[in-house]
Design a protein around this nucleic acid. Sequence first.
DNA 1: TCCCAGAAGGTTTTT
DNA 2: CCTTCTGGGA
Length: 634
Amino acid sequence: MALLARRVRSEDWQPIGVDELEANAMKVVRSAHNRSVIAGPGAGKTELLAQRASFLLQTGAAPPPRRILATSFKSDAARNLAARVWQRCHRNHALRFDSLTFDAFAKGLVDRFGQALPKRWRPRPNYELMFPNDPMFRGFLEQEASSPPKSVGTEHDIRAIRVKSFERRHLLGARLPEAGWSKPTPAQWAADLFWQTSLHKGKQTFLSFPMLGRLAELILRLNPMATEALRLTYSHLFMDEFQDTTQVQYDLVRTIFLGSDTVVTAVGDNKQQIMRWAMAMDNPFAAFNADFDAIQTPLYNNYRSSPDLVRIQHMLAKALDDRAVEPVSKAAATVSGKSCAIFDFSSPEVEAKKLVGLVQSEMKTHDLSPRDFVLLVRQRAVDYAEVLEPAFRKAGIPLRNEAGLVGEVMLQDLLAEEASELLVSILRLAMTSRAGRHWSECQHMLGLLRGIHPEDDAAQAKFAKLLDTFVCQLTKTYEEPPESPEEARELVGDVLDFVGRDRLIAVHPAYAQGDWFDKVIEAASLHLYASSEDAASWSEALDTYEGLQAVPLMTIHKSKGLEYHTVIFVGLDDGAWWSFDADQIEATAGFFVAFTRAKQRVIFTYCPSRGGRTKIATLYQLLEKAGVTIKQVA
DNA sequence: TCCCAGAAGGTTTTT
DNA sequence: CCTTCTGGGA
């Protein structure tokens, strides 16, 4: 498919790389209005944004030199969306698409304009990031903030501030007042003290991401020139996973874009709001629709799950939103028998054994790989892994706890790190046969790091030679996968020498922060060694490194946005859902997220030893109403 | 050092 | 809800 650099007429534009888009999706893609798109799982929300970007860039509806800004929560989501746009658009178009995490966007604003802030809010230019937690806020309230001036209040007033709500309610709860609080309440006084201490005390400024968000909002509120520049730069704004938007983020967007000609598209699913504890707004869609006069546009198709699963999903959806409309499944059923069941086991050990058997037989009948399955738990994946892992290993199917720690880095995070991706890419190129496609990938990634222009053929050729020499040497030096952690570290060190530590750090600011780079490199070395231990070949070791032949085990939160042929939810009991009563909506949303990861089959398991099923009776009732039955297995 | 009572954690993104 | 941590007192 040729990607055209020239402009396409709006009436001639066609979606790229997909069979069809539903009518409403097409409306959103071509829309010139602010819109909120509420769509369930599997509706193709990210795809919709990628198509809309293509339409706007290719038809000139986003006219050059104006750009599109897309914000996501997680960096992999931001990268994923950018990659889809690059697949669909010529480079000249794709270069006008900025896909960022919200935090990166806010930090960028503070880094560019922060020095223009009034003195009381101005961070030092070399500020450090901090990740404060409850104990830290508790310590602050008990120590530094313990004795307020008489005009503000008493020690008792400060002690009355709940630690849990100090950050969200007082430190970040409202827009920053330019000149500070003139008659502060005790909580406002404490919040201001925290701000001033973080900004000005000692030699360093320490800021958290939400604090950066508040500073960014203040910058643009006080600086109409900068705001106007952003409005001119971006003709369109996309916001992904909008249901998880925080007040800080929303206020920033409102300050920049409300009342401008920038067209805003907010996409998400209110039924998948499982980040309320992380300061997500109660109903961001309602606020957005009202403030931005946005047209709410639902999507009705589900391209992920079979018709029967979509039917059951709808029963759950109605519990979360009684006006939910049943989506239309566009995925055919490929399994026979029930698509959802609850299995009762006498003990976790029996459960493990039976689940292995189930995975094995399903793999055979449907020609599936271990990666087509997922074992989901609500929390404490390690506890479940202890019982499940040995049983799976015995059967020759490795199980992999994605939330497990390698050194100090979570496995799932390590695999998403650029440094790790680069390592695997280079090792695949050097150590495995049929490495052709890794050649172009390596050259592309490394070329970007070295700042080689894609169309500078001479420089490309020169670098290709360099890469070839290095790869040949690597192949010779390390014929076999590493046999000790030291050897793994040496190998990783050699690769880094070639890639250039400084270049890697320069392109990824996160690697310049604290000792994160060292942690990632150490984790990559350890994981490479661990993956090599039982591997007969380099290719096997790298497959293990990437977990290509293992059944993943993870929490519901980690599974958000992913999809699997078969979902096995282990432990549908009161113990795992201890917090069910505290926030039934959030808990049911978590249940909904878990269920909707499946394309073909969902299995819930239950063991009496882990808890009863009275507290979460409503979940069982929902399944029962959908015709899902409990089966005594063993 | 041990014991007991009460508190806290669990699900977590981000350069 | 259940498990683990913390601190006071013996």
